[in-house]
Design a protein around this nucleic acid. Structure first.
Lengths: 146, 146
DNA sequence: TCGAATAGTTCGAACATCAAAATAATAACA
DNA sequence: TGTTATTATTTTGATGTTCGAACTATTCGA
Protein backbone atom coordinates (compact mmCIF):
# COMPACT_ATOMS: atom_id res chain seq x y z
CA UNK A 1 0.00 0.00 0.00
CA UNK A 2 1.59 3.27 -1.10
CA UNK A 3 1.30 6.65 0.58
CA UNK A 4 -1.75 7.70 -1.39
CA UNK A 5 -3.69 4.54 -0.62
CA UNK A 6 -2.78 4.82 3.03
CA UNK A 7 -4.07 8.40 3.10
CA UNK A 8 -7.36 7.29 1.57
CA UNK A 9 -7.64 4.44 4.04
CA UNK A 10 -6.97 6.73 6.98
CA UNK A 11 -9.54 9.16 5.65
CA UNK A 12 -12.12 6.41 5.39
CA UNK A 13 -11.40 5.26 8.92
CA UNK A 14 -11.69 8.81 10.24
CA UNK A 15 -14.96 9.28 8.35
CA UNK A 16 -16.32 6.02 9.64
CA UNK A 17 -15.74 6.82 13.28
CA UNK A 18 -16.53 10.50 12.70
CA UNK A 19 -19.99 9.67 11.41
CA UNK A 20 -20.64 7.43 14.38
CA UNK A 21 -19.58 10.10 16.80
CA UNK A 22 -21.35 13.01 15.16
CA UNK A 23 -24.63 11.14 14.91
CA UNK A 24 -24.35 10.23 18.57
CA UNK A 25 -23.61 13.85 19.37
CA UNK A 26 -26.49 15.28 17.34
CA UNK A 27 -28.75 12.75 18.99
CA UNK A 28 -27.77 13.69 22.52
CA UNK A 29 -28.31 17.39 21.83
CA UNK A 30 -31.73 16.85 20.23
CA UNK A 31 -35.06 16.22 21.91
CA UNK A 32 -34.57 12.55 21.07
CA UNK A 33 -31.75 12.15 23.55
CA UNK A 34 -33.34 9.08 25.08
CA UNK A 35 -32.26 7.13 21.99
CA UNK A 36 -28.99 5.27 21.53
CA UNK A 37 -27.31 4.73 18.16
CA UNK A 38 -28.48 1.14 18.09
CA UNK A 39 -32.04 2.21 18.70
CA UNK A 40 -31.70 4.83 15.97
CA UNK A 41 -30.61 2.19 13.49
CA UNK A 42 -33.49 -0.01 14.58
CA UNK A 43 -36.00 2.79 13.95
CA UNK A 44 -34.45 3.34 10.54
CA UNK A 45 -34.83 -0.37 9.76
CA UNK A 46 -38.48 -0.39 10.82
CA UNK A 47 -39.03 2.32 8.17
CA UNK A 48 -41.96 4.69 7.85
CA UNK A 49 -44.86 2.64 6.57
CA UNK A 50 -43.75 -0.86 5.55
CA UNK A 51 -44.89 -2.73 8.67
CA UNK A 52 -42.14 -5.29 8.26
CA UNK A 53 -42.17 -8.39 10.44
CA UNK A 54 -39.85 -8.69 13.42
CA UNK A 55 -37.81 -11.34 11.58
CA UNK A 56 -37.29 -9.12 8.57
CA UNK A 57 -36.06 -6.26 10.73
CA UNK A 58 -33.82 -8.61 12.72
CA UNK A 59 -32.26 -9.94 9.53
CA UNK A 60 -31.63 -6.46 8.21
CA UNK A 61 -29.88 -5.44 11.41
CA UNK A 62 -28.01 -8.76 11.68
CA UNK A 63 -29.51 -9.33 15.10
CA UNK A 64 -30.82 -12.54 16.64
CA UNK A 65 -34.57 -12.70 17.33
CA UNK A 66 -33.98 -12.40 21.05
CA UNK A 67 -31.94 -9.24 20.71
CA UNK A 68 -34.57 -7.67 18.50
CA UNK A 69 -37.27 -8.45 21.05
CA UNK A 70 -35.27 -6.62 23.70
CA UNK A 71 -34.65 -3.63 21.42
CA UNK A 72 -38.30 -3.41 20.40
CA UNK A 73 -39.34 -3.67 24.05
CA UNK A 74 -37.31 -0.58 24.80
CA UNK A 75 -38.52 1.34 21.73
CA UNK A 76 -42.12 0.54 22.60
CA UNK A 77 -41.54 1.65 26.19
CA UNK A 78 -40.00 4.90 24.91
CA UNK A 79 -42.91 5.42 22.53
CA UNK A 80 -41.22 5.24 19.11
CA UNK A 81 -42.38 1.83 17.87
CA UNK A 82 -45.54 -0.21 18.07
CA UNK A 83 -46.19 -3.93 17.69
CA UNK A 84 -48.99 -4.87 15.33
CA UNK A 85 -50.27 -8.43 15.48
CA UNK A 86 -50.68 -9.71 11.95
CA UNK A 87 -54.24 -10.73 11.07
CA UNK A 88 -53.52 -13.47 8.54
CA UNK A 89 -50.70 -15.19 10.48
CA UNK A 90 -51.04 -14.68 14.19
CA UNK A 91 -47.46 -15.81 14.88
CA UNK A 92 -46.15 -12.75 13.08
CA UNK A 93 -45.50 -9.43 14.77
CA UNK A 94 -45.42 -6.48 12.40
CA UNK A 95 -43.55 -3.36 13.45
CA UNK A 96 -44.51 0.23 12.82
CA UNK A 97 -43.46 3.69 13.94
CA UNK A 98 -45.63 5.79 16.20
CA UNK A 99 -46.15 9.45 15.39
CA UNK A 100 -43.16 10.22 17.61
CA UNK A 101 -41.16 7.57 15.76
CA UNK A 102 -41.99 9.17 12.42
CA UNK A 103 -41.02 12.63 13.63
CA UNK A 104 -37.65 11.24 14.62
CA UNK A 105 -37.30 9.37 11.34
CA UNK A 106 -37.72 12.58 9.35
CA UNK A 107 -35.29 14.50 11.54
CA UNK A 108 -32.68 11.81 11.05
CA UNK A 109 -33.33 11.79 7.31
CA UNK A 110 -32.77 15.55 7.18
CA UNK A 111 -29.41 15.13 8.86
CA UNK A 112 -28.39 12.57 6.26
CA UNK A 113 -29.40 14.97 3.51
CA UNK A 114 -27.09 17.59 4.92
CA UNK A 115 -24.28 15.10 5.05
CA UNK A 116 -24.71 13.98 1.44
CA UNK A 117 -24.92 17.57 0.28
CA UNK A 118 -21.60 18.30 1.95
CA UNK A 119 -20.12 15.18 0.45
CA UNK A 120 -20.86 16.14 -3.14
CA UNK A 121 -20.80 19.92 -2.96
CA UNK A 122 -18.60 21.58 -5.59
CA UNK A 123 -18.58 18.44 -7.73
CA UNK A 124 -19.68 18.57 -11.36
CA UNK A 125 -21.61 15.86 -13.19
CA UNK A 126 -18.51 13.98 -14.29
CA UNK A 127 -17.08 13.99 -10.81
CA UNK A 128 -20.35 12.73 -9.35
CA UNK A 129 -20.18 9.86 -11.84
CA UNK A 130 -16.75 9.01 -10.47
CA UNK A 131 -18.08 8.99 -6.91
CA UNK A 132 -20.90 6.74 -7.92
CA UNK A 133 -18.43 4.38 -9.57
CA UNK A 134 -16.24 4.23 -6.47
CA UNK A 135 -19.21 3.66 -4.19
CA UNK A 136 -20.37 0.93 -6.51
CA UNK A 137 -16.91 -0.65 -6.34
CA UNK A 138 -17.07 -0.65 -2.57
CA UNK A 139 -20.54 -2.15 -2.53
CA UNK A 140 -19.34 -4.89 -4.87
CA UNK A 141 -16.44 -5.63 -2.55
CA UNK A 142 -18.78 -5.89 0.43
CA UNK A 143 -21.14 -8.06 -1.58
CA UNK A 144 -18.34 -10.42 -2.62
CA UNK A 145 -17.15 -10.79 0.95
CA UNK A 146 -20.47 -11.82 2.47
CA UNK B 1 -33.06 15.78 -2.06
CA UNK B 2 -33.40 14.52 -5.60
CA UNK B 3 -33.23 10.93 -6.82
CA UNK B 4 -29.51 11.00 -7.41
CA UNK B 5 -28.70 12.32 -3.94
CA UNK B 6 -31.02 9.78 -2.40
CA UNK B 7 -29.23 6.99 -4.28
CA UNK B 8 -25.87 8.21 -3.00
CA UNK B 9 -27.22 8.46 0.53
CA UNK B 10 -28.64 4.94 0.38
CA UNK B 11 -25.35 3.69 -0.97
CA UNK B 12 -23.46 5.33 1.88
CA UNK B 13 -25.83 3.81 4.43
CA UNK B 14 -25.46 0.37 2.87
CA UNK B 15 -21.68 0.74 2.84
CA UNK B 16 -21.62 1.89 6.42
CA UNK B 17 -23.56 -1.07 7.76
CA UNK B 18 -21.94 -3.40 5.24
CA UNK B 19 -18.47 -2.58 6.53
CA UNK B 20 -19.59 -3.14 10.09
CA UNK B 21 -21.07 -6.49 9.23
CA UNK B 22 -18.25 -7.74 7.03
CA UNK B 23 -15.59 -6.86 9.58
CA UNK B 24 -17.58 -8.67 12.24
CA UNK B 25 -17.91 -11.63 9.92
CA UNK B 26 -14.22 -11.78 8.98
CA UNK B 27 -13.39 -11.54 12.66
CA UNK B 28 -15.62 -14.43 13.69
CA UNK B 29 -14.16 -16.67 10.99
CA UNK B 30 -10.55 -15.83 11.87
CA UNK B 31 -8.41 -17.12 14.72
CA UNK B 32 -9.17 -13.86 16.52
CA UNK B 33 -12.79 -14.74 17.07
CA UNK B 34 -12.60 -13.92 20.76
CA UNK B 35 -12.57 -10.23 19.80
CA UNK B 36 -15.62 -8.02 19.39
CA UNK B 37 -15.79 -5.02 17.04
CA UNK B 38 -15.33 -2.64 19.95
CA UNK B 39 -12.25 -4.47 21.10
CA UNK B 40 -10.92 -4.41 17.55
CA UNK B 41 -11.31 -0.65 17.40
CA UNK B 42 -9.61 -0.36 20.77
CA UNK B 43 -6.61 -2.36 19.55
CA UNK B 44 -6.42 -0.13 16.49
CA UNK B 45 -6.44 2.96 18.71
CA UNK B 46 -3.65 1.58 20.90
CA UNK B 47 -1.55 1.37 17.70
CA UNK B 48 1.62 -0.62 17.12
CA UNK B 49 4.37 1.17 19.01
CA UNK B 50 3.17 4.56 20.31
CA UNK B 51 2.52 3.55 23.93
CA UNK B 52 -0.20 6.15 24.27
CA UNK B 53 -1.66 6.84 27.69
CA UNK B 54 -5.03 5.45 28.70
CA UNK B 55 -6.54 8.95 28.56
CA UNK B 56 -5.35 9.52 25.01
CA UNK B 57 -6.82 6.24 23.83
CA UNK B 58 -10.08 6.94 25.67
CA UNK B 59 -10.36 10.33 24.02
CA UNK B 60 -9.73 8.90 20.59
CA UNK B 61 -12.45 6.32 21.07
CA UNK B 62 -14.83 8.82 22.70
CA UNK B 63 -15.06 6.63 25.77
CA UNK B 64 -15.14 7.63 29.42
CA UNK B 65 -12.10 6.61 31.47
CA UNK B 66 -14.12 3.97 33.28
CA UNK B 67 -15.24 2.31 30.08
CA UNK B 68 -11.69 2.23 28.80
CA UNK B 69 -10.48 0.58 31.99
CA UNK B 70 -13.05 -2.18 31.50
CA UNK B 71 -12.12 -2.64 27.85
CA UNK B 72 -8.40 -2.77 28.60
CA UNK B 73 -9.07 -5.26 31.40
CA UNK B 74 -10.65 -7.60 28.89
CA UNK B 75 -7.95 -7.09 26.26
CA UNK B 76 -5.25 -7.77 28.83
CA UNK B 77 -7.09 -10.91 29.95
CA UNK B 78 -7.35 -12.05 26.33
CA UNK B 79 -3.67 -11.36 25.77
CA UNK B 80 -3.74 -8.55 23.17
CA UNK B 81 -2.78 -5.51 25.23
CA UNK B 82 -0.42 -4.75 28.08
CA UNK B 83 -0.35 -1.99 30.66
CA UNK B 84 2.97 -0.20 31.08
CA UNK B 85 3.42 2.00 34.11
CA UNK B 86 5.03 5.26 33.06
CA UNK B 87 8.40 5.94 34.69
CA UNK B 88 8.33 9.73 34.73
CA UNK B 89 4.71 10.16 35.90
CA UNK B 90 3.55 7.21 37.92
CA UNK B 91 -0.11 8.16 37.64
CA UNK B 92 -0.03 7.45 33.93
CA UNK B 93 -0.71 4.04 32.38
CA UNK B 94 0.73 3.58 28.92
CA UNK B 95 -0.80 0.99 26.64
CA UNK B 96 0.97 -1.33 24.23
CA UNK B 97 0.18 -4.34 22.08
CA UNK B 98 1.51 -7.77 22.90
CA UNK B 99 2.98 -9.91 20.12
CA UNK B 100 -0.49 -11.42 19.67
CA UNK B 101 -1.95 -7.92 19.52
CA UNK B 102 0.50 -6.91 16.80
CA UNK B 103 -0.25 -10.02 14.75
CA UNK B 104 -3.92 -9.10 14.87
CA UNK B 105 -3.19 -5.47 14.04
CA UNK B 106 -1.38 -6.45 10.85
CA UNK B 107 -4.11 -8.87 9.80
CA UNK B 108 -6.71 -6.16 10.24
CA UNK B 109 -4.55 -3.70 8.33
CA UNK B 110 -4.29 -6.16 5.44
CA UNK B 111 -8.05 -6.39 5.28
CA UNK B 112 -8.31 -2.60 5.07
CA UNK B 113 -5.78 -2.58 2.24
CA UNK B 114 -7.94 -4.97 0.28
CA UNK B 115 -10.94 -2.76 0.87
CA UNK B 116 -9.23 0.41 -0.29
CA UNK B 117 -7.88 -1.33 -3.36
CA UNK B 118 -11.40 -2.38 -4.31
CA UNK B 119 -12.62 1.13 -3.67
CA UNK B 120 -10.26 2.78 -6.12
CA UNK B 121 -9.67 0.03 -8.65
CA UNK B 122 -10.16 1.08 -12.27
CA UNK B 123 -9.88 4.76 -11.36
CA UNK B 124 -7.33 6.96 -13.15
CA UNK B 125 -5.34 9.75 -11.50
CA UNK B 126 -7.96 12.42 -12.17
CA UNK B 127 -10.71 10.28 -10.75
CA UNK B 128 -8.68 9.54 -7.64
CA UNK B 129 -8.30 13.29 -7.18
CA UNK B 130 -12.07 13.58 -7.24
CA UNK B 131 -12.43 10.89 -4.59
CA UNK B 132 -9.91 12.65 -2.41
CA UNK B 133 -11.83 15.90 -2.82
CA UNK B 134 -15.13 14.26 -1.82
CA UNK B 135 -13.57 12.55 1.17
CA UNK B 136 -12.05 15.84 2.19
CA UNK B 137 -15.49 17.47 1.90
CA UNK B 138 -16.95 14.85 4.17
CA UNK B 139 -14.19 15.21 6.70
CA UNK B 140 -14.75 18.97 6.69
CA UNK B 141 -18.44 18.43 7.34
CA UNK B 142 -17.71 16.13 10.26
CA UNK B 143 -15.17 18.59 11.59
CA UNK B 144 -17.63 21.50 11.41
CA UNK B 145 -20.28 19.54 13.23
CA UNK B 146 -18.17 18.59 16.23
C1' DT C 1 -55.24 -34.62 12.88
C1' DC C 2 -50.51 -35.02 14.50
C1' DG C 3 -45.77 -33.94 13.93
C1' DA C 4 -42.66 -30.58 11.83
C1' DA C 5 -41.60 -26.05 10.89
C1' DT C 6 -41.87 -21.12 11.83
C1' DA C 7 -42.28 -16.55 14.59
C1' DG C 8 -41.46 -14.59 18.54
C1' DT C 9 -40.33 -14.36 23.65
C1' DT C 10 -37.76 -15.54 27.82
C1' DC C 11 -33.58 -16.47 30.32
C1' DG C 12 -28.74 -16.50 31.74
C1' DA C 13 -24.22 -14.92 30.82
C1' DA C 14 -20.81 -11.79 29.02
C1' DC C 15 -19.80 -7.35 27.00
C1' DA C 16 -20.45 -2.00 26.75
C1' DT C 17 -21.39 2.13 28.61
C1' DC C 18 -21.89 6.12 31.73
C1' DA C 19 -21.74 9.04 35.93
C1' DA C 20 -20.04 9.59 40.26
C1' DA C 21 -17.08 8.31 44.04
C1' DA C 22 -12.59 6.61 45.40
C1' DT C 23 -7.51 6.19 45.03
C1' DA C 24 -2.99 7.56 43.94
C1' DA C 25 0.45 10.64 42.30
C1' DT C 26 2.02 15.12 40.88
C1' DA C 27 1.87 20.25 40.70
C1' DA C 28 1.18 24.73 42.74
C1' DC C 29 1.77 27.98 46.00
C1' DA C 30 2.14 30.20 50.39
C1' DT D 1 8.27 22.44 52.97
C1' DG D 2 3.59 21.18 53.76
C1' DT D 3 -1.00 21.62 52.41
C1' DT D 4 -4.22 22.03 48.68
C1' DA D 5 -5.61 21.57 44.00
C1' DT D 6 -5.27 19.03 39.88
C1' DT D 7 -4.72 15.03 37.10
C1' DA D 8 -4.82 9.91 35.80
C1' DT D 9 -6.85 5.92 36.52
C1' DT D 10 -9.86 2.50 38.84
C1' DT D 11 -14.02 1.07 41.17
C1' DT D 12 -18.95 0.76 41.65
C1' DG D 13 -23.77 0.55 40.46
C1' DA D 14 -27.12 0.99 36.94
C1' DT D 15 -28.79 0.33 32.27
C1' DG D 16 -28.33 -1.23 27.66
C1' DT D 17 -26.58 -4.85 23.99
C1' DT D 18 -25.78 -9.16 22.45
C1' DC D 19 -25.88 -14.18 21.86
C1' DG D 20 -27.47 -19.01 22.16
C1' DA D 21 -30.61 -22.15 23.85
C1' DA D 22 -34.91 -23.35 25.75
C1' DC D 23 -39.79 -22.28 25.51
C1' DT D 24 -44.65 -20.89 23.65
C1' DA D 25 -47.90 -20.21 20.21
C1' DT D 26 -49.38 -20.79 15.63
C1' DT D 27 -49.46 -22.62 11.04
C1' DC D 28 -48.26 -26.02 7.50
C1' DG D 29 -47.85 -30.66 5.49
C1' DA D 30 -48.65 -35.37 5.00
Amino acid sequence: MDERDKAINDSLVRIYSGIMWIEENELSKSKFNDLTMKEMHAIHAVTMYDHKSASEVAKELHLTPGTLTATVDRLVRKGYVERLRSADDRRVIRLGLTKKGRVFYRAHEAFHNMMVNSFIKDLDATEIKTIEKALWNLEQFLHEHS
